[in-house]
Design a protein around this nucleic acid. Structure first.
Lengths: 122, 122, 122, 122
DNA sequence: GTGGTCTAGACCACC
DNA sequence: GTGGTCTAGACCACA
C-alpha cells in the first residue's frame, strides 16, 4: 500500500509553525526552538529542520541571530497569512474546482452547494 | 515525525477503485481482482481488502458471486458518482469554506477568487 | 595555516554560473547541466549543487522542469545583474569604505585616489 | 571543487602580522615569535615563515638580530600602513572600479552608491 | 551552546 | 534518466 501523497516533512514542520503563528501561540520577536531541539522533538534529522527554517526565513516569517537562534519576525503573522493565502489560491482552489467539475457540477453551482449541502440533484 | 493525517487504508483502496470506475478503466459487470490478488498488489492484509469490498458492496458499486469473485454492478459508475458527491458535499465543501473564512475571505469572494487567482487583497 | 575565509562552495558554484550568464556563455531558456553532472564536474556532492540550484531558482535565474532538468529563465541575465548589484552594494561597497577609512583616507578622497593611483600622501 | 583563488600562504601570514601591528597588538621594538614557533602555530613549513619574515624585513617592518630573533622596527606601524596603502591602491581600488563599471555604474556614481545603498536603478 | 555547510548514501516520484 | 527529500554524521565559525 502506498503512502506517498505526502507533503514533504520539512513543509509539514513549516505548517505546524505557521499554525503556531496564526493561533498566536508564538509571539512576534520571540525565540523559537533551536534546530537541534525541534529535530529531537520531531524525531527528525537536524538538516530537515534546517530546510524548514531556511524556507520560513525566505518567507520572512522568521529571522536568525548568529550563534543565538531563530526568532519570529515582526511581521510573522502577516507574512504567514500571505503565504497561506498564496498556497490556497495556487493549489487548493484549483483542486477544489477540478473535483467540482469532475463530479459534474458547474462553477455557478458553488453558491447553492454551499447553502444546501444536502442537494444531490439527479 | 508523525504521518497521522491518513485516511484509513481500506478507504484509500476504495478511492483507487472508484477512480478506475470513474475513468472507465474498469467496465460495468466485469470481474474485478480477487481479494488475495489485490492484497498482494498493495502489500496489505487480505482482511483490509475485504473491508474495502464490503464497503463498496454496501454502496452498490460492486456485487459478489459466491465462489466466483466480485463484479462491478450495472450502475457502478452512477453509484460511485453519488458516493463521491456525498463525500464532497459532506467533507470537502465544508473544509474548503472553513479554510476560506479562516484566511479572511468571505463566501461571496469565491467567484472572484476563482477568476483572478492573483487577487490577495483582503 | 587557515583557509577559512572562504565563500561557501555552493555559492562559489552559483558565482560561476552567474559569470556564464553575464558573459553570455549560456543563453536564456537553455538547459544547464544536471545536478549530478555538475557535481561530478566539480567533484562535489550532488546535494551541494542542489543547494546552488535552489538558491538560483529563488533568485529566478533558473527554473525547473520536473524530470527534465534546470533551465535559464527568460530574465536570467537581468536577474543575475540585480543579484550581483545587490551583493556589491551590501558587501563590497561597505568593505571598501571600511578599508579606505582604516587606511586613513576620507570618503571624499575617492575621486582623487582613482585618478592618481600613485598618490600616497602621508 | 577548486579553492585556487588563494593568496600565497607566506603573504597570508604577513597579513596577519600586519594586522597585529595595525591594531597595536604587537608593539614597536618588541621581539616577535621565532620562525619555528610561528611555523608550528600555523602548521606550515618553517621555510614559509622565513619567506614571510624576509618580505617584512624588506618592507622595513621587522628587523633581525642574529642569534636572538626578529623584532618590530621603530617605524613598523608607519611602514605597515604604507605597505597596505600601496596594496590598496594597486590592487583593490582597480578591482573595485572594474566591478563597478562591469555592473553598469559610472565612477561618478560612487558618492551616491555610498550614501544610498538601496539605489539599484539603471 | 548556536546555526551553516558539506559529504555519502539512500529512496522516491516523475518523465 | 531527471530532481526532491531525508538521514547520519562531520567540521566549522560565531558567541
Amino acid at each position: 500500500m502506498e503512502y506517498n501523497d505526502q507533503r514533504a516533512i520539512y513543509l509539514q514542520i513549516a505548517d505546524m509553525i505557521c499554525e503556531k503563528v496564526l493561533t498566536d501561540s508564538w509571539e512576534a520577536n520571540k525565540r523559537i526552538p533551536s534546530v537541534r531541539e525541534l529535530a529531537s522533538d520531531f524525531q527528525v534529522n537536524p538538516n530537515t529542520v534546517m530546510r524548514t527554517y531556511n524556507f520560513l526565513q525566505q518567507e520572512e516569517i522568521i529571522y536568525n541571530k548568529r550563534g543565538i537562534g531563530y526568532f519570529l519576525s515582526e511581521e510573522a503573522k502577516q507574512k504567514t497569512l500571505d503565504l497561506k493565502k498564496q498556497e490556497f489560491l495556487d493549489k487548493e482552489v484549483p483542486q477544489f474546482i477540478n473535483k467540482l467539475t469532475m463530479l459534474g457540477y458547474k462553477i455557478s453551482d458553488i453558491q447553492s452547494l454551499i447553502k444546501s449541502k444536502n442537494n444531490e440533484d439527479k
